[in-house]
Each structure stands twice: as C-alpha cells, then as structure tokens.
Design a binder for these strands. Structure first.
Length: 698
DNA sequence: TCATAGACTTAGAAGCCCAGCT
DNA sequence: AGCTGGGCTTCTAAGTCTATGA
C-alpha cells in the first residue's frame, strides 16, 4: 500500500494554523496543570461516556504488530545483557564467548607497538600495527563499569580546511553588467554560490535571500553599497572557472594523481588515528567541515546561510592529561583543552547555523562505537522477551479513562506497528517542518471508516526525518480508530494529534516497562526481527548463491520499507535498466541457439551412436547449462535492481539489523560474508562476524 | 517541572574511484 | 587506453535521548 512517491516539500499553508494552535494547546495543558480541576477533554472521560461509546468486545486475541509471534512473556530472563554495569557478573557466569580476561595493568604497553612479530614479518612497517589492530578483539574483554569511556586518549587534533586561495585575475565577476573585483572575504563567499549554480538550491527564494544577507556581511562597505541586488550578480565566470578546474583535475596525469593520493594517505596516517586505551583506532571525521553555504534538507528556513570557517580558536580539544596534547597550527591557540573521559569525542566546535555542537569522534569500527552498537542490539533482544506483555498493556490502555494514557497507548502502537520515530518537538522556524509520532498533527492523518474492502483505515501523510515523505494507508483495530476520532475532536489541522503526549512522557513510561527501553528500541527490534523472519521465510537451501542473495536483499528490503528508507531513484536508473534488459535479451537468444545446437547434436548422436557425437552432446549440454545460469543471474539482478529503485538498503543494514542475524544466515547457507558486507561493513561488524554461529537467534 | 545544552545515532546525497566494458 | 556505471566513502544534516540547571 505504501506510495513510494517522494515529496520533499509540501506547501506550508498549514503553518499558520499550526502556530496558532500550538499556543492554544500549551495553554490548555498549562491550565490543567495549574489545577482548575479539569479541562474540557478531561471532562469527557467519565466512565459513562466511555462505556456508552465503546461496547466491550475485547476477546484478547489479536494479531501482533509485525510478524513477531514470540510466546515468551517473561521479561526478567537473566540472559546475557550488554550493559556495562552488569557485564562483570554476567560475563563470568554466562558468556562462553569471552575467551580471556582483561588485565588492565599488564597490557598497558603491549599494544601500542606491535608485539606479535611472527605473523607480521613480511608486512611493511606501516601496515604492521594496522594489521595488529584489526585483529584486536575488544569484544572478548571486560568493559569499564564506572561510566568512563576511556582511560587514555592521545591524538593530533583535527585537520583544518585549506585557506582560501583568491581567484586569478582572469576570472571575472560582473555586477549589473559591470566588471568588479571583490576583496577576498566577499569573493570567497561568492565562490561558494558560484560553485552551486547548477544546483536547484540556488533558484530557491529562501536560499537566495539567506545567502545574500550573509554575503553582504562579508563585503567591504564599498562592495556593500554597490551590490544591493543578487539578481544583478553574474557568477558565470566563476562557475566556468571551477568547472574547468575540476575538468583539469580529471585530466591530470597518473603521476600527479598518485602524488595527491599519497599526500592524502600521509594526512590520514598522521591525523586519522588516535590512541585510545593502548589501541590505535581510526577516527571517523578528522577533517573540520570547510566553510560553505548551508544546505538544509526539505524546506529549511536557513538554507543558503554562510557556514563560517572554523579556526583553532573555535576548537575544544579532549584528550588525556598524560598524553601528548595536539598542537594548534603555528600562531594559533585552541579554545580549550580538556580531559573528560566521560565522553567519547576528541574535538568539538560550535557551528554557527543552529548553534549546535559538532564533534570529532571515532570510526564505527572502533571499540567505543562497536560496544555501543552491540549493546543496542542486546537491548532490542531484551525487548523481544517482553514485547508481548508491553503490547497487551498498551492495548489495555486504549480503554483507559485518562486521555493522556490513551494517547500514549495509541502512539506506542504506531511506533511499534509502523516503526515510526519518536518525534521530538522542534523549535519552529529553526528547521524544516517535519514530524515523528509524538509530534504528528491533525493534518497528517485521515480516517476512513471504510476504504475499498477494508475497515478502519488510517492514512498517514507527513514529512519525517530529512523531509522524506511517509505515506501509508493502514487498517487498524476498531478501538484505535475510535480513539483517533476522539483525539481529533474539536481540533484544527495544525493542532497536535497527541496533545497530551511528548517523547519525554512516552520514554519515561517505556523506561518503567523495561530497563533501557526507549521509542527507538522498537525500530531496532522490529527491523531485526523482521529480517530474521523474512530470511527464514524466503531462503531455500536448494537455491543457487545468487538466488539466496536475492532472498537476503528482499528480506533487507522488507525492513527498509518498514523503516521508510527511501532514496532518489538514481539519475541513470532507466538507462541502466535498459542496458541490463538488452543483455538479458541477448542472453536469451544465445540460449535458444545453444538449445538448438544441443538438439542437433542429440539427433546426430542418435543416428551415429559413436563416441565423438556423444561427447559433442555433452559439450552442448554443458553450454546450455552455463548460459541458463548466466541468464538466471542477469534476471535476478534485474529483479533486484527494479525492486530497489527507490529503496535504500544501506541505512537499515548499517543501523537497524543485528549483524549477527546476517552472519548466522551466511554460515547456515554457505554464503561468503563478503557477498553481503563490503569491507567497511565487515570492519564495523567484526564483533558479530567473530562471535555469531549459524544457530544465532535474535 | 521544564527548557536547553550536550552527546551520540541515524540519514540521504554527493563525490570519488575502480572494475568491466568497448 | 579511455569511458562509464555503480558501489563505496565521505560528508554533514537531522534525528533521539540524557544530563543539567533554573
């Protein structure tokens, strides 16, 4: 039912509504709190009103959201848990996987310098320590229990964006038809715009307005007085210059390219790694974001604003006291150097568009990220154990006489059934207007008591994270439907659907249901359980390897659809599909030709019965078989690609699917892990690849 | 209790790069 | 040898959720 059409931008006609009523809502809530005793909504929830409206009909049976059919209800099952505080005991008791104890003191010096010489003899110096680090199995070691994230941290600080290089004089900029030479600051900002000329961003009103406002701030007073209208600016010369530059870069000789590559590699080796607790770890983003024009997604009110250049004076460095502190570039200072081992970042700065903090952190393959990731899936597995109880509970709560509890229960049902995000409140005017579950507004749903042959259908249509459209029509249980009707009463399109609920209330409730439970755990849980279920359903051990992989991708796709992970159809999609089809057609022709030959060979053999013709038949038979296989492979590829047109598998693979499910599947069906995880993914999921056996159950 | 700051995960797009083709 | 399509990597925005402090 899902309409895949993307819509990254809706008209904002509802905005005014929203603004108006948001205030009203808040007032209403406040009023109630202050304690006038009751509000109009509270009044409605007397028992009698309730019973009148809703005859009991709960038979206790329902098909659980998604496909999960676990019958286990116990939540206190003391299986392996990933929480640091519990690790010690559980490790000792339960985990057979952790192969050796971690002895802090002894290891202090060992691993910084590679010590395992045997295997590394023939490896070059640079690769030696890397090889060694790749093999570090942090998942077999103890975890800290005191909330500290590390004991030792040393790094060289971030790499700054290269300074601005003024344009050569031959590059012309015209204002109102007249040649103008800009001073460096204004010129730099102008180049940001000029580089984007082909992008549709630059045609948008908001973008242009924001850009122009910020650009003018960089101008000299003389420039400022002259340049008053963006429409009179001619950036074409600059634009061409940059195009020529990138063309020239492409045309560079092999040697030049090689040199650049080597330079990059050197920077990576110097700045791309840090030492955390005796291990060399890869840093995720060691380069500071260069200045440029802010590109928000969807209808962002701040698009086009100038993202200013970050200087050493903006940077806070985090490292251990007893480490070699990173040096700021000559003649500069850090904003601060601190030693906070309760956080994982190495450096941070405050960004000027939203005023939020940006961080330099480690790569997903690092221990610190991996542990957290592992823990995330363990929490989701704990949810699996008690999800039935929680589902029964929220179903009960649909009948509550308290409005806030009903809203909470219906919202939770959506989060569970549809894998919606929690939906924090956002500051208006600061970001694009997007919503999640708790922040849904009346205008985002439509109710259909009957639609086609289905009853109680809810239609969702809203922009979610990244302004990706969520569109779905889904039949719900009658009680949910009735509740929604109630929530909608006396509301305007811009009002909150769940006016008595926010993410903080919801998460507090979830925390009471299960330790560590928050809204997003449902997404992780439902994604992973769906993958496991789909894999079970779709895989067939008799299938060929490509067919099995198609099954895997389909299972992955089911999850991506559940989580609404969309992508813009690749620009070259149609063409590449056509190319593939041509290949298939050709292969088909080849096949029928080969079959004909086989037939002829058979006839020949029948007539002569000699050895030579028998061999010929065999040869032809083999050929037919080979071509059939090739054709099948192509057809599978085409199917896979077609089905994937607007669906992005990467996000779920990377963030929602317990990698142990995939690893176990590979082992069970004899698929090499490389077929489903590329190098980066294998690095990130090294822990899972190492520990999951074929019988792993999520 | 509430708003805000801070830390960290999740997200799609853009750009790069290289295998496989002509 | 050059071209090109597509996968991989990088980038950074946009979420979630917790901590903090008034």
């Amino acid at each position: 039912n899902r309409d895949n059409e993307r819509l990254k931008h809706t008209d904002s006609s509802s905005e005014k509504h929203r603004e108006k009523h948001k205030d009203k809502d808040k007032e209403r809530r406040r009023e109630e709190k202050v304690g006038t005793g009751f509000s109009y909504t509270a009044l409605k929830f007397t028992e009698s009103v309730f019973i009148d409206n809703e005859p009991e009909e709960d038979n206790g049976l329902y098909s659980s959201p998604q496909h999960n059919k676990t019958s286990r209800r116990e939540c206190d099952d003391e299986e392996f848990d990933c929480k640091p505080k519990k690790v010690k005991t559980e490790h000792d008791k339960k985990s057979k996987k952790r192969k050796h104890e971690y002895e802090e003191e002894d290891e202090e010096e060992e691993d910084i310098k590679p010590k395992k010489k045997k295997k590394d003899k023939n490896v070059t110096e640079g690769k030696k320590s890397k090889k060694d680090e790749e093999k570090w199995k942090w998942w077999e070691e103890e975890r800290s229990t005191d909330g500290s994230k590390w004991r030792f941290l040393e790094h060289k600080g971030p790499v700054f964006a290269p300074p601005y290089e003024p344009l050569p004089d031959k590059v012309k900029f015209y204002y109102d038809g007249k040649l103008m030479k800009l001073a460096a600051p204004a010129e730099e900002v102008a180049t940001f715009f000029a580089k984007m000329l082909d992008h549709e961003y630059t045609t948008k009103d908001v973008f242009r307005k924001n850009f122009f406002k910020d650009w003018r701030k960089e101008m000299t007073s003389e420039e400022k007085s002259k340049i008053t209208d963006l429409n009179k600016c001619n950036f074409a010369g600059m634009n061409e210059y940059f195009k020529a530059q990138s063309e020239a870069r492409k045309q560079m000789s092999k040697e030049e390219k090689q040199k650049i590559k080597e330079d990059n590699e050197r920077i990576l080796q110097e700045y791309g790694f840090c030492i955390m607790d005796n291990h060399k770890e890869r840093i995720g983003n060691f380069r500071i974001e260069p200045p440029g024009l802010f590109r928000g997604r969807g209808d962002h009110p701040k698009m086009g604003m100038l993202k200013r250049r970050i200087r050493p004076e903006d940077i806070i460095i985090n490292c251990s006291k007893d480490s070699k502190h990173p040096k700021p570039p000559p003649g500069t200072k850090w904003k601060e150097v601190r030693h906070d081992n309760k956080v994982t970042w190495l450096a941070s700065w405050t960004e000027n568009i939203q005023g939020s903090i940006k961080y330099i952190m480690l790569n997903p393959s690092s221990r610190i990220k991996g542990e957290k990731d592992w823990q995330k899936y363990e929490t989701a597995r704990r949810l699996k154990k008690c999800v039935d109880r929680i589902r029964n509970q929220y179903r009960e709560d649909w009948k509550s006489k308290e409005m806030r509890i009903r809203q909470r229960a219906v919202a939770l049902y959506f989060i569970d059934k549809l894998a919606l995000r929690a939906g924090n409140e956002k500051e208006e005017g600061e970001t694009a207007d997007t919503v999640g579950c708790c922040s849904l507004r009346v205008e985002h749903i439509n109710l259909y008591p009957k639609l086609d042959d289905q009853e109680y259908v809810v239609e969702f249509d809203f922009l979610g994270k990244d302004s990706i459209r969520y569109y779905n029509r889904i039949p719900v249980e009658k009680r949910v439907f009735k509740n929604l009707q109630l929530f909608l009463e006396n509301k305007q399109p811009g009002d909150d659907l769940f006016d008595r609920l926010n993410t903080s209330i919801l998460n507090k409730h979830l925390q009471e249901l299960m330790d560590g439970l928050t809204a997003k755990v449902f997404r992780t849980y439902n994604a992973s359980i769906t993958l496991q279920q789909q894999l079970k359903e779709l895989s067939c051990s008799d299938d060929s390897v490509p067919a099995k992989i198609l099954s895997y991708n389909r299972a992955n796709r089911a999850v991506a659809i559940l989580c609404n992970h969309q992508r813009a159809p690749p620009k070259t999609f149609e063409k590449s599909m056509q190319n593939l089809q041509t290949k298939i057609d050709e292969k088909q022709k080849q096949l029928s030709a080969a079959r004909k030959q086989l037939k002829a060979a058979k006839a020949e053999h029948k007539a002569s019965h000699d050895d030579k013709s028998k061999k010929a038949v065999e040869v032809k038979r083999k050929a037919v078989q080979r071509i059939e296989e090739q054709l099948m492979k192509l057809q599978v590829q085409a199917t896979d690609r077609e089905e994937n047109k607007q669906i992005a598998l990467g996000t779920s693979k990377l963030n929602y699917l317990d990698p142990r499910i995939s690893v176990a599947w590979c082992k069970k069906f004899g698929i090499p892990i490389e077929k489903i995880y590329n190098k980066t993914q294998r690095e990130k999921f090294a822990w899972a690849i190492d520990m999951a056996e074929k019988d792993f159950e999520f």
